[in-house]
Write a protein that binds this DNA or RNA. Structure first.
Lengths: 221, 221
DNA sequence: GCTCCGGCGGTACTGAGTGCCGTGCCGATC
DNA sequence: GATCGGCACGGCACTCAGTACCGCCGGAGC
């Protein structure tokens, strides 16, 4: 029933556009009553994102399941769950992406979905950074950065019609965030003394390049 | 006319709630025709954010007006324009904040507004980082981080009923972002040789603390 | 066979948003 | 001074999303 409604809806959306398709059209094509549509989808927008609710629950469960020595890594892993959902059905994801790009109402709806993901990540980080000075600020900023990096890679993959390695692109993007915000802890070096790294930098050098040097020197490049 | 509609709308929204107020109620109180409401506000949500359109235009103009040696600083300054708009009328902003917090539809609308701000910032940074490897990624992430930091400070100020120094809070939050992403360039030292800074770091130290050390050493703390 | 119940459909309603047209008010023109 | 053209406003009628309510039916249990 749900699947039949989604299929009918997308067929009409692609044929004549989202706003030109009424709920009556959809239920007529699916051969069900109008009331049943709203039993399965709270609104017309929801039929475009039939799996986000489940994915959000998965992410929440993942974050609640446990902690990690490195909170940033944990939220990056949580973000990857979203990519997996998109990658499950590339053709569908690409069609939906084109739809949401040109329909303002769908874009707004997608933003509210993304916002809920971001709040889930920020909530986890806020708990981990509780007590730290500017802990909530740090949590919010990192959550926003993780979401932005994820979406940057995801959307460039969607724009390319699902060609290329989406996971690698997202990994690369998330690695940038981890580079910027740093890993709070790294595996201890057990087979040697506490070695040190010396960075020499000209005053006036781009700071982020210095950070890249640091990363390379610390063996995280 | 616009102001009369906004005043009537907020009076009713605060009295009986947003969803319990119809557009007919608003125009009846304001003493104007229903059709005129939609002439000034494309939707019922728009009457809650009567000045965002102007602010967005201001930000776009500010970003288009010129560049900066340090793009991150420029987008931080652009973000401050939004705070100024909120600070112009603290009482109104606090009321609106409470309204948007408890009405899902308004929250979704606000997200779409914030998204447009973020895209404006990201567009500026994308142009500045054009050609750099991962330039658009870096632009999107920084824009998201700036918006998140700004909103973190703004909302904590709104939660405190407009008490405290909003500008100082936002400055502090944005400074965190600049610390994480660094300044690409700093003023050249003219009255001395190209001096160098040496940082010694234990492998395993938190990277972001190392960045803070770097900043302090480079005289940007 | 009877009842209870959950999924489904139909009807009627509210309210947002739109298109169209009439009206009154204004300065400009002859 | 009468007329014309633009413009802002109001009113009416309509579409469509979303909701409340009720009636129908088929299966499970007694």
């Amino acid at each position: 029933m749900r699947d039949a409604l989604v299929a009918a809806a997308f067929r009409l959306f692609l044929e004549r556009g989202y706003e030109q398709t009424t709920v009556d059209d959809i239920v007529a094509l699916a051969g069900v009553g109008r009331r049943s549509f709203f039993r399965y989808f709270p609104s017309k927008e929801d039929v475009v994102f039939p799996d986000h609710e489940r994915c959000l629950a998965d992410m929440t469960a993942f974050l609640a399941a446990g902690t990690d020595d490195e909170p940033v890594r944990r939220v990056c892993d949580a973000a990857r769950l979203v990519l997996l959902m998109y990658a499950e059905n590339p053709a569908f994801s690409v069609q939906r992406y084109r739809l949401t790009r040109q329909v303002p109402g769908l874009r707004a709806y997608e933003l509210s979905v993304v916002w809920r993901y971001e709040r889930a990540l920020a909530g986890y980080l806020r708990a981990r950074y509780a007590g730290l000075r500017d802990g909530t600020l740090r949590a919010d900023v990192i959550a926003a950065a993780v979401v932005a990096a994820h979406n940057n890679a995801l959307r460039s993959w969607l724009r390319s019609d699902g060609q290329g390695d989406a996971e690698a692109a997202v990994d690369h993007a998330l690695e940038h965030v981890r580079a910027a915000f740093g890993a709070e802890t790294v595996p201890a070096v057990t087979d040697g003394p506490d070695d040190v790294v010396v960075i020499v930098s000209r005053r006036g050098a781009p700071l982020w390049r210095v950070v890249q040097e640091l990363e390379a020197a610390l063996g995280r490049g």
